[in-house]
Amino acid sequence: MNNTPDEWPSSLTDEELDELDRYLRAHAEEGRLLLDGVHGLLSAIAVGPLEVLPDEWLSEVLHDAFADEGEGNRVLELLAKLNDSIRVELDVDAYEPILGEVDTDTGPVLSAAGWCEGFSRGIDLRAGLWEKRLADDPQLMELLGPIMALAVDEGILSAEAEFEKLTDEEYNECLAQVAPVLNAVDQYWREHPPTEAELAALARPATAEGGTAPSPPRQRSGHWVH
C-alpha cells in the first residue's frame, strides 16, 4: 500500500456505521448479511490468498435495487470505506471485529455468529485455494483455530468430531484473538502465496475428456466447512 498516513481512509464514524446498518436491516431477509456479517466477509477477503474484486463480493451484500441513484451511491460509498478501512486497521494493529448482540437472561452479550457467517462466505469466494491449503498445511488450520472454534460454536461450520460448546470464558478468549488471528493469517499468505500449481488447479474447469472433475469443497448451505 503506497498511501501515506495522511491519505489513509479512516474507519467509518458511528453515524456512518448506523446508516449502513439501517440500510442492511431494512433489506434483511433470511440468509442475508447484516453489518457484522459484511465486516466478516470483507475481513476474510482482506487477509485472503487472492484479490476479490467488488463485482464479486457485492453480490453477497446487495440484493435489491436501490430506491434512487443517490441512495445507491451512498451505500456503495459506505461499503467501499468499510472495505478500505479493514486493510488499514490491520496494517496499524487497530482492527476490531464488528459483532452483533444477543439478548440473554442476564442482558445483551456479544455474538460472533454474524461475523463468522460473513467470514465463511469470504473464504468461499476463494474456496479452492483455502480448502487445498488447509488440507495440505496444518499451520494455517492452527492459525485459524480461534475463529473456527467460534464458527463451530455458532453452528456456522460443521465439525467432523463431536464438539463441546465453548464456555463463556472460552468464547470471550476466542473473540479477543480475532484480530491477532487475522494478522497472522494475513502474514501467512504473504509468506506462502498460492503456488503456480494451486492457481492452475483453480483455473481448470474440468479434467481432460474422459476424466472426472475434482470434487468441490465440502460446504453446507454455501458455507465453508471442515
Rank of each mutant, 00 (worst) to 15 (best):
R121M: 07
L199S: 02
P5W: 07
D137I: 03
S215M: 11
L41R: 02
W130D: 01
A208L: 11
P205Y: 01
E101I: 08
V61E: 05
P49R: 04
L34H: 08
G107S: 04
A200E: 13
L99H: 08
L157N: 06
V181Y: 00
T167C: 03
F119A: 11
G155P: 09
E60V: 01
R204I: 04
A184Q: 13
Y171E: 05
L182R: 03
P5H: 08
T13N: 05
I147D: 09
A28F: 09
A179E: 15
D105W: 06
A26H: 10
S59M: 12
W130M: 03
V152H: 03
E160W: 08
S221K: 09
W115P: 11
L125G: 05
L78K: 05
L182G: 09
L125F: 00
D18P: 01
T167V: 06
G72Y: 06
E96I: 03
I98W: 04
D93L: 13
H39E: 06
A159H: 14
Y188W: 09
V102E: 14
E29D: 11
T106S: 12
A197K: 10
E169V: 15
E198Q: 15
D168P: 03
C174D: 12
E89S: 15
G48F: 00
E101P: 03
L144S: 12
E30D: 14
D137W: 01
G37K: 00
C174V: 02
G114Q: 12
G107L: 01
T167H: 02
S120W: 00
E101T: 14
L62P: 09
G155L: 10
G70F: 07
